[in-house]
Design a protein around this nucleic acid. Structure first.
Length: 312
DNA sequence: AAGACGAAAGTGGTTGA
DNA sequence: TCAACAACTTTCGTCTT
């Protein structure tokens, strides 16, 4: 059962064309069909298809949504809140009432400040997660880490948006569904450098070791936004693999590697995309693609083949 | 007009003394 | 903590198709 706040829905009839997983989710806001395992986008601009879930009246809507949410980290306090109420105040003695007031005050301070912060963070997180089309498990883990970060006072004195963005970036990378700094920054409406800085900070504080993103983890997504075929996608993967074996990716940014590999693959497979197009979707400059693809093609011995293919 | 090229100067991150 | 360093970006003029 999905959290009803999410406008995403699991789709079981199909499997992912990138990794074969049957675990797909559909984002009803953006109309995209996304793989919950690899993060690949299978289709975008889908129209609402799930007629069975549509509600035609208020009662029907209520009935269909009434099934409760499971315990979830994506809802602050997992739906369980205890408060000191104000019933029967007038029946108390003045002394007792005073103590009661103090208790209430502290209750508000202790349990009050946390939910307020959490509520803000989680709704922001909800927004960003949807914007980036991230799988549910990433949302869950990010929310869990936010709570943890809050508890060890990592959040204190920092903007909620920054921490949220940093955590999402971190979790995406840990779960091999990487998003670029630029993508997260844009979705979270935070400066890129802030995402980077806070990401390192929370990773250190939460004691998370994070390995650099693997270029091939980016290929399905970028290939699909560039509308490239499976063949070309496979070719790009192969190029990245070969180039890694030759020790050429050390020190290079994963984005630069993907962009270069996609360029080479697209040209060789006769589905050429311009450097500019690729540069824009991946978020690197054309210069980076040029340097990368020249070196790669040369090392792999496909430079001539590439030049020839480009003529067409 | 569009795509590719590369020079040159600037930026941010990593590393090692 | 500073300085050196490589990768990357930005900008821009040039060449080709």
């Amino acid at each position: 059962m999905e959290n009803k706040l999410d406008s995403v829905e699991t789709v079981k009839k199909r499997s992912c064309t990138f990794c074969g997983s049957k675990n797909l989710i559909q984002n009803k806001n953006s109309g995209e069909l996304v793989c919950n395992s690899c993060g690949g986008v299978l289709e975008d601009n889908l129209v609402e298809q799930s007629a069975s879930r549509r509600a035609f009246s208020f009662e029907e809507k209520q009935r269909k949504e009434r099934t409760g949410s499971p315990l979830t980290y994506t809802k602050h306090h997992r739906g369980i809140v205890t408060r000191i109420g104000s019933k029967n105040m007038d029946k108390m003695s003045a002394d007792k009432r005073g103590r009661y007031h103090r208790m209430k005050k502290w209750d508000r301070r202790l349990s009050g400040s946390k939910p307020r912060n959490m509520r803000l963070a989680l709704s922001e997180m909800q927004r960003v997660v949807e914007d980036l089309n991230l799988p549910k498990r990433i949302h869950e883990e990010s929310a869990r880490l936010y709570e943890k970060a809050w508890e060890i006072e990592v959040v204190k004195g920092r903007r909620v948006e920054n921490i949220v963005a940093a955590l999402i970036f971190l979790v995406c990378r840990m779960q091999n569904v990487p998003r670029t700094l630029d993508e997260v920054a844009e979705a979270a409406e935070v400066e890129r450098t802030e995402v980077g800085r806070n990401y390192r900070y929370v990773a250190r504080e939460l004691d998370k070791r994070v390995v650099p993103a693997k270029p091939e983890d980016f290929t399905p997504r970028f290939a699909s936004s560039l509308d490239l075929s499976g063949r070309t996608r496979g070719k790009a993967r192969q190029i990245i693999k070969d180039v890694r074996e030759k020790g050429l990716i050390a020190g290079r940014s994963p984005e630069g590697v993907v962009a270069s590999a996609l360029y080479i693959a697209s040209v060789l497979e006769g589905e050429k995309r311009s450097q500019k197009e690729i540069a824009e979707t991946v978020g690197v400059t054309e210069v980076t693609i040029r340097k990368g693809y020249r070196e790669f093609a040369e090392e792999l011995g496909v430079l001539e083949e590439l030049e020839d293919a480009r003529e067409l």
